[in-house]
Write a protein that binds this DNA or RNA. Structure first.
Length: 423
RNA sequence: GUGGUCGUAGCUCAGCUGGUAGAGCACUCGGUUGUGGUCCGAGAUGUCGCGGGUUCGAGCCCCGUCGAUCACCCCA
């Protein structure tokens, strides 16, 4: 029988890399939590129309990248290609926007797009996102950006860049698009590109071909069309970013892949990832709630690509922090029952403990201790049980010191730097 | 969806102009009867991605297919 393979283009993580993945994801989530964002756990599939309406009919995501299927009741469902539409649906459906505003939530999970896989691009990929709904204030725009930026700094990333722009309000966009279409009508494009321009002329700014780039170099830029209010908000966003010490560049040609963005839009790009430079992005979406049948509320959020951020960390050679793994590895010598009992006791106090199973010989068990990456090891034989004293060995230095079993938990907690941070 | 490159042991890879598989690392056991990493010895491991074709004979050539990878469209 042929061996099963994972479906094409999915990202999956297993030891030891899964530990690194988990660390990256937890770091991002923690950055959201310290800013008061709370978990939203949502379905991986939704009514297809939620995405076609929310994300936008003209986007590639909706036109050719959705995993759509019919359930047994004949409903058309789609595996979520992004997170914001689902959050909006849940907020509207459960009236979460009827209380205190803003509603601040985060989500984390798998998303699905039927694209050709490539470095850092998967058909099932992971995002952590946050949304702040119900307050139109440049300060919250900056807070959202700061949550992402803090996560990147916490991870130790340095080769990334924040790009920002303002897409203006609906009226601005209409005026601008008219001008842009007029400009595009004056240049000559191949059929396919022209068709794309027809659908959404902004996309031409994203084209990587040199010919197209030079043709677009004289195109009108949206930022020149901003209304006074949009321009003021955008200036405020920049001022606040400077105040918080968050570096950025203005990219007036930034294009977001989803149609719902208005006002502030931003993207984090990383220089070491090949063709897929984006590690996260987001922006304000003032018309989306109403578009999906809710009240007129503005919102802002981001989605960060966990797979790509992990790749970025690896590309920059960032190691997992000390003390992220096991604290203690127990090597039993015919004392399996006692070893398991002690392990469970220590685990109950939050200490990360593993032990050798299957009556392994001492040498093999010590090797396991070594491989486990545990900070400490201890041999537990009849002598130790009798005397109640064990030799706690620090694996890195090879030095060991005597500790009584009754003081073991206390001693470990004392010694473990960062205790609790990795639990 | 389009194009380039590539699929050999758990991993990284070698394998000549076609003659039915090899190295390093990792793994298991031992040298060392209660202390890992170094060293030495021994051992296990493959439908050579899959299917078909050419050939006396295919890991190698041809076709198809699946997957990976890189780029394009696009995006996290």
């Amino acid at each position: 029988m042929a061996r099963f393979q994972a479906p094409k283009g999915v990202s999956e993580y297993f030891p030891d890399r899964s530990t690194y993945f988990d660390y990256v994801r937890s770091t991002i989530i923690e950055s959201a939590r310290v800013a008061g964002y709370q978990l939203m756990e949502l379905p991986a599939f939704e009514d297809t129309e939620l995405f076609s309406r929310g994300v936008g009919e003209s986007t590639d995501v909706v036109r050719k990248e959705m995993y759509t299927f019919e359930d047994r009741g004949g409903r058309s469902l789609t595996l979520r290609p992004e997170g914001t539409a689902g959050v909006m649906r849940a907020v509207i459906e459960h009236n979460l926007d009827r209380g205190q505003l803003p509603v601040k939530v985060y989500y984390s999970g798998a998303f699905f797009r039927a694209e050709r896989p490539q470095a850092g691009r998967y058909r099932q990929f992971y995002q952590v996102g946050i949304e702040a709904i119900g307050v139109a204030d440049p300060r919250i725009d900056v807070e959202v950006i700061a949550v992402a930026d803090r996560a990147f700094k916490e991870l130790g990333l340095s080769k990334y860049q924040l790009e920002i722009t303002s897409l203006g309000d609906v009226l601005t966009r209409q005026n601008y698009l008219k001008e842009l279409r007029a400009y595009i009508a004056t240049i000559s494009l191949d059929d396919e590109t022209a068709a794309r321009a027809e659908l959404n002329p902004l996309r031409l700014f994203d084209d990587k071909r040199a010919e197209v780039k030079s043709l677009m170099s004289d195109a009108p830029v949206l930022m020149d069309f901003l209304t006074e209010e949009s321009a003021k908000d955008f200036a405020k966003v920049q001022e606040l970013l400077r105040l918080l010490g968050i570096d950025f560049v203005i990219n007036p040609r930034m294009v977001r892949g989803l149609d719902y963005y208005t006002g502030t839009a931003f993207e984090f790009v990383h220089s070491e990832l090949g063709a897929q430079t984006g590690i996260g992005g987001g922006g304000r979406y003032d018309g989306l709630m109403a578009q999906l049948g809710g009240q007129e509320l503005s919102g802002i959020g981001f989605g960060l690509g966990v797979d790509r951020i992990l790749l970025a960390c690896e590309a920059e050679g960032i190691a997992l922090p000390e003390g992220y793994g096991l604290d203690l590895f127990i090597v039993p010598l015919g004392t399996g029952d006692a070893a398991l009992t002690i392990a469970e006791e220590l685990r109950g106090r939050g200490i990360h403990v593993d032990l050798a199973f299957g009556d392994k010989a001492l040498k093999g068990a010590m090797k396991s201790a070594d491989r486990s990456g545990a900070t400490y090891s201890m041999v537990l034989g009849a002598d130790e049980l009798e005397s109640g004293v064990v030799a706690l060995k620090e694996m890195k230095t090879g030095e060991s010191s005597s500790v009584t079993l009754s003081a073991l938990a206390h001693e470990l907690i004392e010694r473990i730097s960062n205790f609790g941070e990795h639990s």
